[in-house]
């Protein structure tokens, strides 16, 4: 696939203070407990009260992040809206399941059902911005955001002028408990800033809503260029080992050209071995900032774009950083979701 893809605007609602002001100057938010929740902004600056009253949390997060992203990019009506979400609106799904039981299938409010559909956020964005163009939602765990990104890159390649691409996921206490039953989270309770001091089975959970405005042309405003994307589904160790050098080679790069790898390393000893392919690369883990969830790749991309734009790694977020790299041209992101969906994303400074 030819054609270029630049990040013209972006916005992120995450467990860190990423939404307002200069996010790179914010101190790290430290949470004691294995479930990180978003630092939520005041939604009323973005959504009319009459629309806000029915919306549940992840709808507000998704819609607000998308609107802020469009503001940031200066694009009012994007040529397409493409998103990824692993779980959609959990709150609405949980509520509707409970109402079916509690009211014995009688006299049910339709709102949680409507809002539980995975494309609800997309519909709201389209509605609010009057965007009647292409609209798609991917719902495939650790590939949800990445396929939204691939779809967006295809659209730009096919001639769409700009695309709003994003991802959103939330965690609820009930779902945190449920996923804990199949070993997703650590048994011991920790603080996120101490995540990597606790190698053990499981990790910490998180959530976030992150959006990007993408265009095929570079401007002075561009944050970064998205140079490459690859997804590997349940790769064998041999396949994974050769995949990384091959991916770099496809983009005309060698290991030495990578100035930084943002890794999905999450202190989960069940799946830590995959990250050994990064031995020898300069690397920083990021999940102490976000927790782990299906679409955390969008947060990693936001982080990489910030770092490339500012040509600096925010040291208060990365206390493990020994020294700033000599140059910051190429950032690689390698992440996987509980060992199943593996992704490489390559970003270049502009």
């Amino acid at each position: 696939m030819k054609g270029k893809c630049y990040i013209q605007g972006m916005a992120a609602i995450t467990p860190q203070h990423t939404f307002e002001g200069d996010p790179m100057a914010q101190p790290m938010v430290v949470t004691h407990g294995n479930m990180l929740s978003c630092a939520e902004p005041d939604y009323r600056s973005f959504i009319a009260p009459n629309s806000l009253r029915r919306m549940t949390r992840v709808l507000k997060m998704g819609l607000t992040a998308s609107l802020k992203c469009l503001q940031d990019s200066g694009i009012a009506v994007p040529g397409a809206i493409v998103t990824g979400t692993g779980k959609g609106s959990l709150q609405d799904t949980e509520r509707f399941i409970k109402e079916i039981r509690d009211y014995q299938e009688k006299a049910l409010n339709p709102t949680p059902f409507i809002q539980s559909t995975y494309n609800a956020v997309n519909g709201l964005i389209a509605l609010q911005q009057k965007c009647t163009q292409y609209n798609n939602t991917f719902v495939h765990r650790g590939f949800s955001f990445e396929h939204a990104l691939l779809d967006s890159m295809l659209l730009l390649h096919e001639g769409t002028a700009d695309v709003l691409a994003g991802a959103f996921d939330e965690i609820t206490t009930e779902h945190f408990f449920i996923k804990g039953r199949i070993g997703h989270w650590k048994k011991e309770t920790i603080s996120n800033d101490k995540l990597y001091d606790h190698p053990s089975p499981g990790t910490i959970s998180g959530e976030g809503a992150v959006f990007f405005a993408l265009t095929p042309v570079v401007t002075t405003q561009s944050y970064a260029q998205i140079g490459g994307l690859q997804m590997l589904y349940k790769p064998s160790p041999e396949k994974l080992n050769i995949a990384l050098p091959k991916f770099l080679q496809q983009h005309g790069l060698q290991a030495a050209d990578i100035d930084l790898v943002l890794t999905g390393e999450n202190a989960d000893t069940n799946h830590a071995h995959y990250y050994e392919i990064l031995n020898g690369y300069p690397q920083l883990p990021f999940k102490h900032l976000s927790g782990d969830y299906e679409t955390v790749g969008a947060f990693a991309m936001w982080l990489a774009a910030q770092i490339l734009k500012h040509q600096q790694i925010p040291s208060q977020w990365f206390p493990m950083l020994q020294q700033q790299p000599a140059k910051l041209r190429n950032i690689l992101i390698y992440n996987h979701f509980f060992g199943e969906q593996h992704t490489f994303m390559l970003l270049h400074a502009v």
């Binding site: 995975y118 494309n119 719902v139 349940k234």
Partner: peptide
């Protein structure tokens, strides 16, 4: 059945049974 709560489960079980090795994903637009 915990893993079957989401939309990717059915896709992956079918993919794993058949042995797909290309791009794999799930779309949900109602």
């Amino acid at each position: 059945y915990i893993d079957t709560l989401d939309c990717a489960d059915c896709t992956q079980r079918i993919a794993d049974t058949i042995g797909f090795d290309g791009p794999i994903t799930t779309i949900s637009t109602a």
